[in-house]
Design a protein around this nucleic acid. Structure first.
Length: 594
RNA sequence: GGGGGCGUAGCUCAAUUGGCUAGAGCAUCGGAUUGUCGAUCCGAAGGUUGCGGGUUCGACCCCCGUCGCCCUCGCCA
């Protein structure tokens, strides 16, 4: 029986509705039983409304209300009443009214839930994921999902306004080398052959440009069979776009419009545009990260020149060996305990540095256990260079160039959080540009830093074969609050350049033919200059909500080991399915009941 | 594949050096209650201490193995 279909949601009624007869549907949040009067709090996605049952009004109805339990699904018919002044709850949206019940339908009973469906209760991730549908019923998760929707809506609105076409691309695609490990899907029709789940729509969106679609976008699932992190899931969502006849500034302007629209619609925040830019080299030099959090200072300072001639051999030998010495100055950090410093040393070593040298500003010079290794005039020069004052603490790492920056960058990020240097509630998106095309892979072989379709800067083309590691790419990353929101590039649109780049990463002609032949063929038929970008939706929503894991903004996420605890996936299959797929397991199949 | 943290009642946690009947809050169940709103009060029930093995007179605690969750390095163009 379901006759009392709702006339209002549980968040709708106000004092101005007093006197109306209404129907409400929802879940039982609580029954506060006072004996001769009982209050039922009814909940749905839109809010909560209090329903009153009284003995002197309808004793039988009160009895039934008292039998309700948490999470029962009910329908109520009643009259909206303004509450007495002393019963008003101004802090609740529906706090000025209540509904006096006339009829009650129990639409469904509910078992006692494994945890309270409440925003106050703390539950382990494990339990939450197993009963995700109950977790999602909790207010914070409903808020997260609603925000997620708003982000997507604002993004799509901007894309539509700018003339982008929402086109979809296949999920089942060809397995291609490089980049993330693919999930493989065996083919029933083609024995021994496999599809891959798309790790991104990259090639297809570029071919849309060859096809003359001009402006394409998609909110798109991507799949990567790599290990998980708090901000990484095997299945995640990207805002993806690609456009023709453009350079970097056009793509950036298009994305900025979308990102700014999201901030405006979701947070009511107006972002300053255009977003500032920082070169990769500057990001690494000043922050020791390619996605620095610029909401606080603590810049890295290079003291290699002072270190070169230093009497402290850790410094001078590092420079002599081709390394560098950099430091950062923590204003007022002089009170840090030995234990705290030791913990920081452990942290820095964990990122690969050999150690951490520290000095404290005191008595107009620098002190601390390492100070004895320096001459007084060296200490003065370091103090000067670092801009240190009495009461500050200085940290130094002497190491190979890359390791030094990354280690100190890690220390900087850690200190920013630990010392609460971050201005919360501020949003400073910016572009990191001029990435190197390649980085050194295993065995010193160059590999693409972004991806193999990224265009080199024209002025660096000559270096492609001679000094590939010096070639800069027409790539850009969008960084916000220390999180890489996404990245993109202007693509190669000429076959000859594409061939050269593929050759640099070590693909020979037959390999190129086999893996990317169709792409190069397409470029034979008139590929326009084009470029694009992809943003991580889950990370974006996480940032906007101030959360620290994307699991809380993904409706049905996987665990750290990549399982779905609700479905118990992955799971075994029956022999017949394997036979159809022409697959023989090394171990006999673990059959699951189906 | 490596490092770290955790696993005790439905949920979140406690239990001194290995020692008394493994406790608390919330939830649940029963009772009381005519203005509650994270209701309150009284009472009750609730345990394979993840699982398997070992050491010991005695194990939540120590050892070995195993399973699961989380963080992290590698990995993620």
């Amino acid at each position: 029986m379901f006759t009392l279909k709702r006339t209002h949601t549980c968040g709708a009624l106000r004092a101005s509705d007093a006197g109306q007869t209404v129907n409400l549907n929802g879940w039982v949040e609580a029954v506060r039983d006072q004996g001769s009067v009982a209050f039922l709090v009814l909940r749905d996605r839109y809010g909560q409304t209090q329903v009153v049952f009284r003995k002197d009004f309808d004793e039988a109805l009160l009895k039934r209300a008292q039998s309700l339990r948490a999470e029962f699904v009910v329908a109520v018919r009643g009259v909206v009443k303004a509450r007495a002044a002393e019963a008003m709850r101004k802090e609740q949206p529906t706090g000025e009214i209540e509904v006096e019940a006339k009829q009650l339908e129990i639409l469904n009973e509910a078992a006692v839930p494994p945890f309270e469906v409440s925003e106050h209760v703390q539950v382990s991730d494990e339990t939450r994921l197993k009963y995700r549908y109950l977790d999602l019923r909790r207010k914070p998760m409903q808020r997260n999902m609603i925000t997620r929707h708003k982000v997507l809506a604002a993004f799509r609105e901007s894309m539509d306004r700018q003339g982008f076409l929402d086109l979809d691309t296949p999920v089942l695609i060809k397995n291609t080398p490089g980049g993330a490990r693919n999930f493989l899907v065996p083919s029933r029709l083609w024995e021994g052959q496999f599809f891959a789940l798309a790790e991104s729509p990259q090639i297809f969106k570029q071919l849309f440009q060859v096809a003359g679609m001009d402006r394409y976008f998609q909110v798109c699932k991507c799949f990567r069979d790599e290990d998980l992190r708090a901000d990484r899931q095997p299945e995640f969502t990207q805002f993806d776009l690609e456009m023709s006849f453009v350079d970097e500034s056009d793509v950036q302007a298009a994305v900025e419009d979308a990102v700014a629209n999201v901030f405006k619609k979701v947070l009511g925040v107006e972002l300053k545009r255009p977003f500032p830019k920082m070169t990769y080299a500057e990001a690494m030099d000043k922050y020791g990260s390619d996605k620095p959090d610029i909401r606080f200072g603590l810049h890295l300072v290079d003291v290699s020149e002072l270190a070169r001639t230093s009497s402290f051999r850790v410094f001078s030998e590092a420079v002599a060996g081709g390394g560098i010495v950099k430091g950062l100055c923590v204003p007022g950090g002089g009170g840090m305990s030995r234990k705290e410093i030791d913990d920081l040393t452990t942290l820095v070593k964990g990122v690969g540095a050999k150690g951490l040298v520290w000095l404290k500003g005191e008595g107009g010079t620098l002190g601390g256990s390492s100070a004895k290794n320096f001459k007084p005039e060296e200490l003065a020069a370091i103090r000067e260079k670092m801009g240190a004052k009495d009461g500050d603490i200085l940290f130094f790492v002497a190491d190979e160039k890359g390791r030094c920056k990354v280690a100190l960058g890690g220390l900087r990020t850690h200190l920013g959080a630990k010392l609460k240097l971050i201005k919360e509630g501020t949003w400073e998106p910016f572009w990191v540009v001029e990435f190197p095309m390649f980085e050194e892979g295993p065995e010193g072989k160059p590999q693409a830093k972004h991806h193999v379709f990224t265009s080199p800067k024209p002025e660096d083309l000559d270096l492609l074969e001679k000094e590939p590691l010096k070639v800069r790419a027409r790539a850009y990353d969008l960084v916000l609050n220390g999180v890489e929101l996404g990245g993109g590039s202007i693509r190669i649109h000429r076959k000859d350049v594409q061939r050269r780049v593929l050759a640099v990463i070590g693909l020979d002609e037959s390999n190129i033919r086999e893996k990317f032949g169709f792409m190069l063929d397409a470029f034979d038929y008139g590929a326009p200059p084009h470029g694009g970008i992809a943003l991580g939706v889950d990370r974006f929503v996480m940032l906007l909500l101030g959360l620290d894991t994307i699991r809380d903004v993904i409706p049905y996420p996987k665990t750290q080991k990549g399982q779905c605890l609700m479905q118990n996936a992955p799971s075994g299959v029956i022999q017949r399915q394997l036979d159809e797929l022409h697959i023989r397991l090394k171990q006999p199949p673990q059959e699951t009941k189906m």
